[in-house]
Amino acid sequence: MDASTLLQVRDLKKYYPIKQSPFSRTKTFAKAVDGISFDILRGETFGLVGESGCGKSTAARSILRLEKATAGSVIFDGIDIMKLDKAEMRQVRRELQVVFQDPYSSLNPRMAVKDIVAEPLIVHKEARGKELEGKVAKLLDVVGLSPSSSERYPHEFSGGQRQRIGLARALALQPKLIILDEPVSALDVSIQSQIINLLEDLQQQFRLTYLFIAHDLSVVNHISNRVAVMYLGKLAEMAIGEELFKDPQHPYTQALLSSVPLPDPAAKRKKVILQGNVPSPVNPPWGCRFHTRCPYKMDICTQKEPPLNDIGGSHFVACHLTGGQVKQ
């Protein structure tokens, strides 16, 4: 593995068994994540976008080992974390932190803010007494919370401030990678921009790497260096952010981008309005998973699953239309 790679995900799968009649002989599964591979480079923000239910969060939880992956490997900073036992994993988790969409449900309501932020430091025996107090005060300051907030409880804070508390806690053990799962989705626009700027500042200051998961394409485009688009458990396209948003190759990416309403009444665009809904991951369509909604469907699309092809310029597309051809 290249030294510049911090996280390498290969053919990650997570299948959930579906409850069935006791007489049925074959087992069926919801294939929430069905073989995805990507690398995250040190210091970058890697964006993962897709609509609800496409498997983004399941992928994150599997990488974090909050769920047991069905197959695949996850190499973090040179260590294959799928093979670690509990104690070893606990050590790795210091460097691999996560912040979720709803900070409220992930913060213990009975703990004061200072104790929430101190907890990881105490559990990992990083600091105690005066030193611990000093570290907590510094962390609160870094995320823009006033010293007076340390004695208060999560319910006394707004959504944006709770997200700051979650970030202070995630930063406590000086992680290398933070997985941010819809970190700003629940926030009002003015607060959302405050948190996005804070995330950018923290990344600079602490040389952090982010896996940024969101459904809002404008936000992902703004914050990410490289972006992968997920559809029904698979990656449809992956490229450098600017390239992906300027020159999307996969019909799904094109439709997704054209669907975003722009805050400009003069904007003239042709929308690609997709018909129907995302199919169920229990019986995903044969061949290309997107063919049931694709405006360019060909015969081959219903028969053969397109691989994620390298089309040059760090741009990858899983589509028979661009099948393996290098872009001119």
Partner: peptide, 13 residues
């Protein structure tokens, strides 16, 4: 708000 049509380096909250 971040926007797809006019990307900017830094948001002004």
């Amino acid at each position: 708000v971040p926007r797809l049509d006019k990307p900017i380096k830094r948001l002004q909250p």
